[in-house]
Simulated assay, not measured.
Amino acid sequence: MAKDVEVAEPGEFSAKDYHDPPPAPLIDAEELTQWSFYRALIAEFIATLLFLYVTVLTVIGYKSQTDPNKPVVDECGGVGILGIAWAFGGMIFILVYCTAGISGGHINPAVTLGLFLGRKVSLIRAIMYMVAQCLGAICGCGLVKAFQKSYYNRYGGGANELASGYNKGTGLGAEIIGTFVLVYTVFSATDPKRNARDSHVPVLAPLPIGFAVFMVHLATIPITGTGINPARSLGAAVIYNQEKAWDDQWIFWVGPFIGAAIAAFYHQYILRAGAIKALGSFRSSS
């Protein structure tokens, strides 16, 4: 009797070559008893703190250098929008590289939500990561204000606000698409199936993630100042604490969460055919 031979489609693996890791449990109370869990929370807190500290300082420094009311204006115009985008993308590259082996290097509640919806992390870990990220962002912006209070207040504290001339729908759309690009890149760069095929992928994963942040900032800084990270927007709003920042705050939560959810669905159920695999498994068991 001939044995069934599974033939892989182009670009696919056979069952002998690769097996998807099991999904993370929805609620894993055992995590609360492990030091590695709290170490990951500390890593997310510190990484988000450093991220906000460097990037907000860059934004404030650029606005200070280009302030037309200053007696001496920098002829070079500071780092410019390109430099700000590099600061955000470069810091994400550095911090993801440093923390990926400890916490996964999320540094963003939207990324955490996307990975939770993709069953990569448990609900408990997702919630605690978001708390750690938001606290880290608040502390990072607090450090900036502590060191440069006059500049911080004068130049907007790096807070995300909808630019004049754009309606809220445009701002929301920019945040949805921008976050989709980021979270889609995260899923693609950390796909275990690609890791099994290409040994260099885990090493290079922080690079495309950082570049995704860089490119999205180039496109959306003129519209919303670029959120795509609810912790970043919340931290700046809490420390700056002005009405305009709070009025637009919902855009920087709703938009990134919708974008992250769409990216998780697209990667897991369209590209990775999760729905088809589940249906095939159901038919086999029947």
Rank of each mutant, 00 (worst) to 15 (best):
A2R: 14
D4E: 14
V7L: 06
A8Y: 02
E9F: 12
P10M: 09
P10Q: 03
E12Q: 12
F13C: 05
H19T: 12
H19N: 14
H19Y: 04
D20G: 08
P22Q: 15
P23T: 01
A24W: 13
A29I: 13
E31L: 05
W35I: 11
W35M: 14
S36I: 14
E44F: 00
F45G: 03
F45A: 08
T48F: 09
L49H: 12
L50W: 03
F51C: 15
V54I: 07
T55E: 00
T55R: 02
L57Q: 06
L57N: 14
V59Y: 02
Y62N: 05
K63D: 11
K63A: 12
P68Q: 09
V72E: 11
V73K: 13
C76H: 15
C76M: 15
V79Q: 09
I81A: 15
I84N: 05
W86Y: 09
G90D: 03
M91N: 07
F93M: 06
C98W: 02
G105M: 08
I107R: 00
L113S: 11
G114T: 03
F116P: 03
R119A: 00
R119G: 00
V121D: 00
V131I: 15
V131F: 12
C141S: 02
L143C: 10
A146L: 14
Q148T: 07
K149W: 07
K149V: 07
S150T: 09
S150Q: 11
Y151L: 13
Y152L: 04
N153R: 02
Y155G: 00
G156D: 07
N160W: 06
E161C: 11
L162R: 02
A163H: 14
A163S: 10
G165Y: 14
Y166F: 13
Y166M: 10
K168D: 03
G169A: 04
T170Q: 13
T170D: 04
L172I: 09
I176Y: 14
L182I: 15
V183P: 04
V183A: 00
F187S: 03
S188P: 07
A189P: 09
D198G: 01
S199T: 13
H200R: 14
H200N: 03
L204K: 12
P206S: 12
P208D: 12
F214K: 02
L218R: 13
T220W: 11
I221C: 05
T224P: 04
G225W: 06
T226G: 13
I228R: 08
N229Y: 07
P230D: 05
R232N: 04
R232P: 05
L234Y: 04
V238T: 04
Q242L: 06
E243H: 06
D247I: 13
Q249A: 05
F252W: 11
G255W: 00
P256S: 12
G259H: 01
A261T: 08
A263E: 04
F265T: 03
F265M: 11
Y266W: 15
Y266M: 15
Y269V: 09
Y269P: 03
I270H: 10
L271K: 12
L279D: 09
R283Y: 14
S284Q: 11
S285W: 14
